[in-house]
C-alpha cells in the first residue's frame, strides 16, 4: 500500500480509538471537575462495561443485534449503579478528601478487577457486532490518463466502526446538552464552582456527587460496550483506557470538557499515526513523560487556560 492510503487507514482506526477514548475521558474529567476526585478505578468501570456486555449478549441469544442492543442499555446502567453504591459507601464517608479518595479508589480498582477474575475468569471473550459490513474506500491517484479513482487493497473499514464514531459523537453532544441546557447540568456546574455555596443554596450536593460518579462510570462503560465487538472483554483491559484517559484529561486541562474532547481526538488520532513510526512501548513512554511534564510545568493543561 502507498503511504497516503496507509495514513488514511491509520487515521480511521485512530478515529475509532478517539471516539471511545473521548467517552471514557469525559467520564473521568466530569468526576474530577465536579467532585475533585481522581478516580483510579475508572479503567475498571470500563472493563466492567465490557464484561457485563459480554454477559448480557451471551445470555440473550437470537440475532447478535438483540444482545448488543440490550448490552448497550444494561451495561452502562449496571456499572453506574455500582459506581453510585461505591460513592455512597466509600467516597462519601471520606468526605471526598482528595488524597484519601485516591487511595480508596486504588483499593476499588483491585476489588473490581479481582472479583471479575474470580467470577468471569482470566479468558478474553468476544461480543459479536450487530452489523459488520465491510466498506472499501477509494483513493485517487494520478495515472496515465490523469486523475483516477481506484480501490487499494486493504484500505477499508466496517460499517460498525463508522457507527461507533457516530454514536460516540451523539453521546458527547448529549452530555454537552445535559451540562449546558438542563437544570441538573446547572446544578452540577454550580457544585463544581463552589461546593459550599451550592450547599448554602440547598443543592443536595451528596446526591449530585453520587449522580456524577455514576454518570462518569456509565460513560466509561458505554465506551467499553462500543469497543467490545472490535476488541475483546478481559479482566485486565482497564489499564490502557485508564492511562489514556489520564493523558487526555491532563493534557486537555483538568475538568474542562471541551479540552478533554479535543485532547481525546488529538491523542486518539496521533496514537494510530505515531504507532506507524514508533514501537507502542516507546509511544507509551513518551505519552507518560508528556503527562508528567505537563503536570509539572503547565498544570492547566496544554489546551486549558484556567488553573486546575
Amino acid at each position: 500500500m502507498d503511504f497516503g492510503p496507509y495514513i488514511l487507514l491509520a487515521s480511521l482506526e485512530g478515529a475509532v480509538t478517539a471516539a471511545v477514548l473521548a467517552l471514557t475521558a469525559v467520564g473521568l474529567s466530569l468526576v474530577f471537575g465536579v467532585m475533585r476526585v481522581v478516580n483510579i478505578a475508572h479503567g475498571e468501570f470500563f472493563m466492567l462495561g465490557a464484561v457485563i456486555a459480554w454477559w448480557v449478549a451471551q445470555s440473550m441469544g437470537g440475532h447478535p443485534a438483540v444482545g448488543f442492543a440490550a448490552a448497550l442499555v444494561i451495561a452502562p446502567l449496571a456499572v453506574a449503579a455500582i459506581a453510585v453504591a461505591a460513592d455512597m459507601t466509600i467516597l462519601k464517608r471520606l468526605d471526598y478528601d482528595p488524597e484519601r479518595t485516591i487511595v480508596a479508589t486504588i483499593g476499588l480498582l483491585y476489588i473490581i478487577q479481582q472479583v471479575t477474575l474470580m467470577t468471569y475468569g482470566p479468558d478474553a471473550r468476544p461480543v459479536e457486532a450487530p452489523f459488520d459490513t465491510r466498506l472499501a474506500i477509494p483513493w485517487i491517484e494520478r495515472g496515465e490518463g490523469g486523475w483516477q479513482l481506484y480501490w487499494p487493497w486493504g484500505l477499508g473499514t466496517t460499517s460498525y466502526k463508522l457507527a461507533v464514531i457516530g454514536a460516540a459523537g451523539a453521546v458527547l453532544i448529549g452530555v454537552w446538552l445535559l451540562m449546558s441546557r438542563t437544570r441538573i447540568g446547572l446544578v452540577m456546574r454550580a457544585t463544581q464552582m463552589d461546593r459550599d455555596m451550592a450547599l448554602a443554596f440547598a443543592i443536595p450536593v451528596e446526591k449530585v456527587y453520587a449522580l456524577v460518579f455514576g454518570l462518569g462510570a456509565g460513560l466509561a462503560a458505554l465506551g467499553a460496550v462500543l469497543i467490545v465487538p472490535i476488541q475483546q472483554a478481559h479482566y485486565l483491559m482497564g489499564a490502557d483506557p485508564l492511562l489514556l484517559s489520564f493523558i487526555v484529561v491532563i493534557i486537555g486541562g483538568l475538568g474542562s470538557l471541551p479540552g478533554t474532547v479535543l485532547a481525546a481526538v488529538f491523542i486518539g488520532l496521533s496514537d494510530g499515526i505515531i504507532s506507524v513510526f514508533f514501537s507502542p512501548t516507546l509511544a507509551k513512554i513518551l505519552a507518560t513523560l508528556l503527562v508528567g511534564m505537563v503536570l509539572v510545568f503547565r498544570p492547566q493543561g496544554l489546551f486549558g487556560s484556567r488553573a486546575a
Binding site: I90, R93, L94, R100, V103, A104, I106, G107, L108, L109, Y110, I111, I112, Q113, Q114, V115, L117, M118, P122
Partner: peptide
C-alpha cells in the same frame, strides 16, 4: 485463590475508611 490481590484492595479501602 489466584485473585489474592483482592485482599490488598479490601485492605486499602477498609484502612482508609
Amino acid at each position: 485463590t489466584t485473585a489474592y490481590m483482592l485482599i490488598a484492595g479490601v485492605a486499602l479501602v477498609v484502612l482508609t475508611l
